[in-house]
Design a protein around this nucleic acid. Structure first.
Length: 328
DNA sequence: TTCCAGGGGTAGA
DNA sequence: TCTACCCATGGA
């Protein structure tokens, strides 16, 4: 489905939300997406840790994904995304809280971004067929699974991926939270909540700001990335629709300082390319234990376990981990 | 205090 | 292409 194919409806209402500095008249607009079935909202929204990296938040009990988003117009809005899991007519609801009126362009931008995050236009039929053919535990894979949450922009995904390298998950969360707090634009209804910073804001920030955001040695990499995006040397957002072969796309990603083999594979997955598989300590421990009785083997041998999945390697690995421990 | 984490850059072979 | 060494930071 193309972004232009998204459906949205409007229901205007208003509420007053007090803030420490001003009383804004907050408006609420409801948009929605109609993804092509099969689609599973909760599985897409909370498919991996990205749902809990700032400025995202996931409420498991209510099954709501929230996020502060800065629009191209400069307005900062709050998004509250929920899903109705009707197997025949799945639907994604987006409640937008905003101060200034939302233009048609704003609304189109929001539906496009949320659609991108939830991958409403990706097809997994071939992967499901492979899973069904394998049978057994693999037969459980289908029904819209496989949509691993991503950010509205490739820029945000690259920064967050760099923030996952050589650190623990708690460190990644702390880095992204601190980055939003330091350089993200506040939501007027609750200035404590901030959007993900723009490349412009990161490029212009004093180096000490990123260092203080716990990025450590990654700070100059992220600032260089921001500068390359700002001056137009690196056009990240077009990569989602790029028809470059995966190896060329991988080379391009490896050209970003701070992005190595692991990060490139993660980014290719986020771009919708599942034929590359990244080697990290999680994969090392899982594959070693599952296939080789814990024996330490070279990276190449561990990755080769998924070779027969072809262009679906990454998802095969992902779901094998999930099948082994769905609650993890 | 030491080790290491969902690694990557660089130099040198 | 491979190896050795270094790189901030925080948790265990």
């Amino acid at each position: 489905m193309s972004p232009a194919g998204y459906h949205f409806t409007l229901f205007g209402s208003a509420m007053n939300i007090p803030s420490p500095t001003a009383i804004y008249r907050m408006n609420s607009t409801h948009l929605h997406l109609s993804p092509t079935p099969p689609f599973d909202f909760a599985a897409a929204a909370f498919s991996h840790g990205w749902a809990r990296l700032a400025p995202n938040a996931w409420d498991e009990a209510a099954r709501v994904l929230t996020r502060v988003e800065r629009l191209d117009s400069g307005q900062v809005v709050d998004l509250r995304v929920t899903g109705a899991d009707d197997a025949r007519q799945p639907r994604v609801e987006i409640a937008v809280a905003h101060v200034a009126p939302l233009t048609n362009a704003d609304q189109a931008e929001i539906t496009r971004k949320v659609g991108h995050m939830l991958r409403v236009d990706e097809e997994f039929g071939e992967f499901y067929a492979l899973c069904a053919a394998r049978g057994g535990r693999w037969a459980a894979i289908g029904g819209g699974l496989g949509r691993l949450l991503r950010s509205p922009t490739v820029w945000e995904d690259v920064v967050k991926t760099i923030a996952t390298t050589n650190t623990q998950w708690s460190g990644t969360k702390a880095m992204t939270r601190a980055l939003c707090d330091a350089l993200g634009e506040p939501f007027p209804g609750d200035p404590a909540r901030r959007a993900f910073p723009t490349p412009e804001a990161v490029a212009a920030a004093p180096p000490a700001t990123l260092a203080a955001a716990r990025f450590g040695y990654r700070a100059p990499y992220v600032q260089e990335l921001a500068r390359r995006v700002v001056i137009g040397e690196l056009e990240l957002e077009g990569l989602t629709r790029s028809d470059l072969p995966t190896p060329e796309l991988r080379r391009l990603l490896l050209g970003i300082k701070g992005v190595g083999p692991y990060a490139a594979a993660t980014l290719l997955m986020l771009l919708g390319r599942y034929d590359a598989l990244g080697y990290d300590t999680i994969l090392r421990d899982f594959v070693s234990a599952r296939y080789f009785a814990g024996e330490r083997l070279p990276e190449r041998e561990l990755l080769a376990v998924y070779d027969d999945w072809g262009r679906w390697r990454y998802l095969a690995y992902w779901f094998e981990m999930w099948l082994a421990d769905p609650e993890a």
